[in-house]
């Protein structure tokens, strides 16, 4: 899938300026960038929710899963029902497995208002996994989770990705997440948003350790790019 020359403005304000990105099949593409630079807008364009002013999307995917920046759960449905909603054919057992993976096994009968922000977020992640899409968009999915949970969610994501064998676009502010997950890491700069740097990482995700020399180097490099902005 390729984005070519994407422009988007809201009123006078230009948000996206000539964005050219290719998202390879069966790879994880991480997107880093300052707050408000247009990352969510970019995902919305990929998902087809908003139309770009200019530019085209080549080889776009039909079945798109999306972990929105907000949880967007139905308030009158339980955790279990919310996850089931997007794929009615999924067996109850497979849904319970997903609930266990995101660590909500004690809350599957609860309603969104009875959950914490992080729990709601995990529910919306399980919902997206249940959809089994060709491409999965994730907008800061692990925000408001503690460090241990984050690391375990990153591991789960890698497992699920291997199983579903799909492509993932992962927006984050956490350099560690990008380093552990990305086959490709795209750094955006703000105002208006442009592609700053693209870093390819060849090491397979399963072998990556955050304290590995290569990963530490990559981390420093990304930090430098981000702080230069």
């Amino acid at each position: 899938m390729r984005l070519e020359g994407i422009y988007k403005s809201f009123g006078e304000e230009e948000v996206l300026h000539d964005i050219n990105i290719s998202i390879n099949d069966k790879e994880i593409t991480c997107i880093l960038g300052p707050s408000g630079c247009g990352k969510s807008t970019l995902l919305n364009i990929i998902a087809g929710i908003i139309k770009p002013d200019k530019g085209t999307i080549k080889e776009s995917k039909k079945k798109v899963g999306y972990v929105f920046q907000e949880d967007r759960l139905l308030p009158w449905k339980t955790v279990f029902e919310n996850i089931k909603l997007v794929n009615k054919k999924a067996s109850d057992k497979s849904i319970r497995d997903l609930i266990r993976i995101v660590g909500l096994e004690d809350s599957q009968k609860k309603y969104p208002a009875q959950l914490s922000g992080g729990m709601r977020q995990r529910c919306s992640i399980a919902r997206a996994y249940n959809f089994q899409s060709e491409i999965l968009l994730m907008d800061e999915p692990f925000k408001s989770l503690d460090y241990d949970l984050r690391i375990s969610m990153v591991k789960c994501l890698i497992d699920i990705w291997c199983k579903l064998n799909n492509s993932i676009v992962f927006v984050t502010h956490e350099i560690d997440e990008a380093v552990l997950l990305g086959n490709k890491i795209i750094v955006l700069s703000g105002n208006p948003c442009r592609v700053d740097t693209v870093v390819n990482v060849s090491m397979p995700q399963q072998e990556r350790r955050i304290d590995d020399k290569k990963m530490v180097d990559l981390r420093c490099r990304l930090l430098k790019i981000l702080s230069r902005q």
């Binding site: 998902a47 087809g48 929710i49 079945k63 798109v64 899963g65 999306y66 929105f68 907000e70 967007r72 139905l74 909603l85 997007v86 959809f131």
Partner: peptide, 12 residues
């Protein structure tokens, strides 16, 4: 409207 968008994305 955000929930409507969500339902659309998930092909419901």
């Amino acid at each position: 409207s955000k929930l409507v968008e969500m339902m659309k994305v998930y092909n419901i």
